[in-house]
């Protein structure tokens, strides 16, 4: 069964230079293995398509039921260089929650 990630997780995103970080957090600790299985760096990279020019790196924080993603070269230069309306990547967290995952 496909469900949107927003059903089991919430997120907050921010910037460091031209890198966006997304903290993705489960509502229920029991969903953490599902998050680890479904939300791979490869899928995150594909989800954002042309918005992310560089690599996507994933870190695991099982103590918080959370994953931390670093999306490199994702802000059109970052900080003051960026020409984007979301130059600080504030809305990337919500964008990630659109992802459809396999809940079975």
């Amino acid at each position: 069964m496909k469900i949107p990630l927003s059903r089991i997780a919430h997120a907050r995103s921010g910037d460091k230079g031209d890198t966006v970080n997304i903290g993705l957090i489960t509502y229920q600790p029991g969903h953490y293995p599902l998050l680890v299985r479904e939300v791979t760096p490869e899928r995150v990279k594909a989800h954002f398509g042309e918005l992310v020019k560089g690599s996507v790196v994933r870190y695991e924080l099982p103590n918080l039921g959370a994953l931390n993603f670093l999306l490199h070269e994702a802000l059109g230069g970052g900080g003051t260089l960026s020409l984007r309306i979301d130059a600080q990547g504030k809305t990337f967290g919500a964008a990630l929650l659109r992802m459809e995952i396999d809940a079975d």
Partner: peptide
């Protein structure tokens, strides 16, 4: 839940 969001805000390598 709220504190977790802030803990992950602008975080790099968590270790």
């Amino acid at each position: 839940d709220v504190v977790k969001e802030q803990l992950l805000y602008e975080l790099g390598d968590p270790r």
